[in-house]
């Protein structure tokens, strides 16, 4: 009986110290859909960057995803250990199509421009206001959301995109 009490007691003593090491940022599950000129945008990069306060520091790191053939995506945080979701709060959202193979943006190997060959310039078919100069924002609610939907408009995409 005494032994049991001692174990329980030491357990009680140790518990708060063991617990204090854990915890940290919480990431809420976020999923949604991207359309471009009302058609699903497949294979697009989706980046959520928490904006943070005045000092530019947010509660957590940014999140990313790639849309599937129906334009749907599910965010994952850019943490060292894979974690689903995004940190609650305001985010700047950037949506782009990754550059085509064989251009400077996407080489199969470094050989593509070996020997000082002129570089092939890749431009993004999705307008810059949705990516490099993004004006898109999204507020992630504390409980997460399944309707982070974005409908983008712009010039028609080149064929094969």
């Amino acid at each position: 009986m005494k032994k049991l009490m001692a174990t329980v007691l030491s357990g009680l003593l140790a518990a708060p110290f063991m617990a204090s090491g854990c915890g940290g940022t919480t990431y809420a599950p976020v999923s949604g859909k991207v359309t471009y000129n009302d058609a699903p945008l497949a294979g697009a990069q989706v980046l959520f960057q928490p904006v943070g306060g005045q000092g530019g520091v947010a509660a957590g790191v940014g999140s990313f995803a790639k849309t599937d053939s129906e334009g749907r995506f599910k965010l994952e945080a850019s943490t060292a250990t894979p974690t689903a979701g995004a940190v609650p709060g305001r985010h700047q959202v950037r949506i782009a199509l990754p550059p085509a193979k064989g251009t400077i943006g996407q080489q199969d190997s470094d050989a593509a421009n070996a020997g000082g060959k002129p570089i092939t310039q890749a431009t993004n078919p999705v307008p810059a206001e949705y990516n490099e100069k993004s004006t898109l924002t999204f507020d992630v609610p504390p409980g997460g959301t399944q309707s982070a939907d974005f409908s983008l408009k712009g010039p028609p995409l080149p064929k094969g995109k």
Partner: peptide, 24 residues
């Protein structure tokens, strides 16, 4: 590079995240 995965002390994880976005 303005995305959080390039501010990590983990090349392999960064590479994996880049690949999931369709980049090398």
């Amino acid at each position: 590079h303005p995305a959080s995965h390039t501010y990590l002390n983990d090349f392999a994880r960064c590479e994996a995240i880049s690949a999931q976005q369709g980049l090398d």
